[in-house]
Amino acid sequence: MRAKTISSVGNYVLAVVICAVFVFPIYWVFNKAFTPLDAINAYPPSFFPTPPTGANIAEAFQEGNIGRYILNTCVIVGLTILGSVLSCSLVAYGFARLKFRAKNALFLVLLATMMIPFDVTIVPQFILFTKIHWTNTYLPLIVPTFFCGFQGAFFVFLMRQFIMGIPLSLDEAAEIDGCNRLQTFTKIIFPMMKPVIAAVVIYQFMYAWNDFLYPLIYLDDFKNYTLTLGIYLMRTPYITPWGPMMGAAGLASLVPVTVFFLTQEKLLGGLQTSGMKN
C-alpha cells in the first residue's frame, strides 16, 4: 500500500516536471511579450515581466502593421474553414455511404496522399499558380481547400469514420421518405456530423492560422502578409526587433493556445482515434 502511494506521488512529480518543461517555450513567448523593452535582452533574464507592459504589442500594431496582418489571416482562416468543411464532408459521405467503381482503391490513394512530402508538389504548384496569375493573392492558399487540399485527406478520413458510425437505417428511412442522395446528405447526415465538423473547423483553423511556408512562397506584397509571415519578416539580417516581435508572437500564439484549451478534449480525442487506424 505504502509503496504504491510513494510511486503514485512519484508519478505526479514526474508528470508535473515533464509538463513544466514542455510548457516552458510557450510561457517564454508570453513572458517576453509583456516584458518592458529595456529589460527584454537583459541578462540574467527575468522570469516574470516586471512590470508587465503592453508596449511591445502596441508597437507591433503601430510599427509592425500587425492589425492588417491579423485581418488578412482571419480572411484566409474563415474561407479555408468553409472550403474544408464543405468539400471534405461531401467526399467523406461519398466514401462512407455510396458505391462506385474503384472506391477502395481511390480511398487508399487518398490516404497515400497524406504521405507525400510537400516539397514534391510545392514547386510545380507554384509554377501552376504563377502561370494563372494567382501569386500575391490568397487564392493559392484558399482554393485548394475547396477541393480537399492541404490537410483535406486527413479530414475526409476523420469524417468518413464518423459517418460510418451513424446507423444506416437513418439513410434508408430518408430514402423511403423520398430524399435523394444529396438531400439525405444535407438534411440527415450533415446535421448529425456536428462533432466531427467542429473538430475539422478547429484543425483547419490551427493550420491556416499557423501556416507559414505557403504564405512565404505566394505573398510578396507586405499588405497581403499573414500574421506569421509578417512576424518572421520583421527581422532583418542586421536587426532583430525583439520587443514588437515577441509582442506579436504573443498575440499570434494566444489565439491557438486559447482555442486549444477550450477544445482540447475534442481535438486530442479525435487524434487519438485516428492513431488507431492501423
Binding site: 509538463c19 514542455f22 510548457v23 506569421t228 509571415l229 493556445v257 482540447q264
Partner: peptide
C-alpha cells in the same frame, strides 16, 4: 496530456 501537446499548436515560425 494537453500541456505536453501544447508546443504542437504553435506555428513553426513562431
Amino acid at each position: 496530456r494537453a500541456l505536453v501537446y501544447l508546443p504542437c499548436v504553435l506555428s513553426g515560425a513562431i
